[in-house]
Nucleic acid binder design. Sequence first.
DNA 1: TGAGGTACTTGCGCTAACGCAAGGAGCGTC
DNA 2: GACGCTCCTTGCGTTAGCGCAAGTACCTCA
Lengths: 232, 232
Amino acid sequence: MSVPAVRELLVQSPLVADLSPPALDDVLQALSVRMVAAKTMLFHQGDLPTELIVLGKGIVKVWQMRAGGTPATLHMLGPGDLVGAVAVFRRIPFPASATAFTECILLSWTAARANELMEQYPAIRTNALDYVGRRAEELAHRLGEMATERVEQRIARTLLRLAGQTGVAASEGIEIGYPLSRQDIAEIVGTDLYGVSRVLRNWAKQGLVETGRLRVVLRNRQRLEQIANRGG
Amino acid sequence: MSVPAVRELLVQSPLVADLSPPALDDVLQALSVRMVAAKTMLFHQGDLPTELIVLGKGIVKVWQMRAGGTPATLHMLGPGDLVGAVAVFRRIPFPASATAFTECILLSWTAARANELMEQYPAIRTNALDYVGRRAEELAHRLGEMATERVEQRIARTLLRLAGQTGVAASEGIEIGYPLSRQDIAEIVGTDLYGVSRVLRNWAKQGLVETGRLRVVLRNRQRLEQIANRGG
DNA sequence: TGAGGTACTTGCGCTAACGCAAGGAGCGTC
DNA sequence: GACGCTCCTTGCGTTAGCGCAAGTACCTCA
């Protein structure tokens, strides 16, 4: 992949915001690029981090396998996001696993090189702090939801969030930009696929969404926001 | 309060780990100290941050009021913890409110001064990144729990976590070091006070805990860990 | 075009747990 | 030492939603 093309992918990331062009060149120098197929595991819960990954293209699912065999999805990351950054910065084992959800392009530095770059260009560390802060905020928000809201509300919120992240305009409405099963939604929401199926079916009958195999289109965003916020 | 006493409180905080003595002096210089009574609100959800607070002594509850009037507790912070740090670093409105849960001693810098200090002493920013990372990790863990575990398990986990943070050895077992109602526990766990009461009562009958008004003593840590992990 | 796999739907029973109501216990105050 | 406040307990009805089982749609590949 050509250097300009890689640069194009990298500058999407908030990690390198406000970097001077020469600094950016230096950062690019140390970068590896690779492409992985959908369903590839990038790392497992418990592994020690060896590299700092920026997602250039595609979707990565960050998830935990929990006691009882129930998986829980923590994040669906998109282009520009950092994958497993917290563990790299803190030099601790990954607290969750990461799987390429679609085909992905990964940009990475070795952990050692990443730390050197942060020493050399303090803006990177500032950006990292900002990024991790945003992630923490999102988690706090979702924890609050999970603690107080009903399944239907959480499904609405989840679809709206995913559509906001990577939604693409469809004929009428916004379509989640990649194949997403009822099971996948259930793992994000913290319920089972049956419940998700029933809720989506119900909404489809009212014209709020259009559904299909591995496919959801939001047709009435406002109504869904109402459900997310007021439960009705 | 004397300078050495304040220094004593400050060095508990991971924020100033690895700072040289002169740097620490400089940081102390810019510090304000104040004491607040239990139940004082430190800031409200939506406020803009004006200062960076380190908790010197006491317990601070970080919580959200959610649609429907149900409060959800995100953190119980103890000595050394940063209060509202993410919002200060990111210069965004607080995503949650903070209340002194017991009488507290607060150490604070103006937001502007805090940012200057981070420029001047990069170790502080490194520590901040580490701290926020740890917070994010804890939130991720709790989100996973909330998504997949039953109320009883979550109560066990919560008590074990609080005991680990600020527990004090009691006659037989570990006592949470401050007054904590069933309602308080419910807001952390994401349930109601009735459920908490029933679970604690049940455990008390089996000798796993000793309970009282605003009081919980863990008598059988191992058994509680079993409940937390395997649900039985 | 038909076989096999994966995803989705839906009926149904069951249980965790929510939440009201009513009463009891502990603690501070005058 | 009795009043009042807050906190805790417990019985009970109700319900959200879990999860099995069985069947249907859709997609791929030979």
